[in-house]
């Protein structure tokens, strides 16, 4: 199962989907587009402590993290 983790005021909200289920993948891709369109950044882990930012939906990613747009503090 793949997981999309969205940071929010509750800590995070997790959406899991079966990467072999076409309908579930389509739904996950829509979520990806909505979140990145709203200013979230998507990142996947590539190794221990390593990550990369992705600009397009990756259905093979086991875990995709979304964080809100950056602002100065």
């Amino acid at each position: 199962m793949a997981t999309q983790i969205v940071m929010d005021r509750t800590g995070d909200t997790r959406h899991t989907f079966d990467a072999n289920n076409l309908a579930a993948v389509a739904k996950a891709e829509r979520r990806f587009m909505e979140l990145t369109g709203a200013g979230f950044t998507a990142a996947t882990r590539t190794g221990p402590g390593e990550q990369r930012v992705i600009r397009s939906f990756d259905p093979t990613a086991e875990e995709t993290l979304f964080y809100p747009r950056l602002v100065g503090g």
Partner: peptide, 25 residues
């Protein structure tokens, strides 16, 4: 430096965002 994700997020989320942002962009 002071920056972080928009919204009132927990410290763990803020620090993780800072790490990813600095290490990738």
């Amino acid at each position: 430096w002071c920056f972080g994700p928009d919204g009132n997020l927990a410290a763990g989320d803020v620090m993780l965002t800072q790490k990813i942002a600095l290490e990738t962009n």
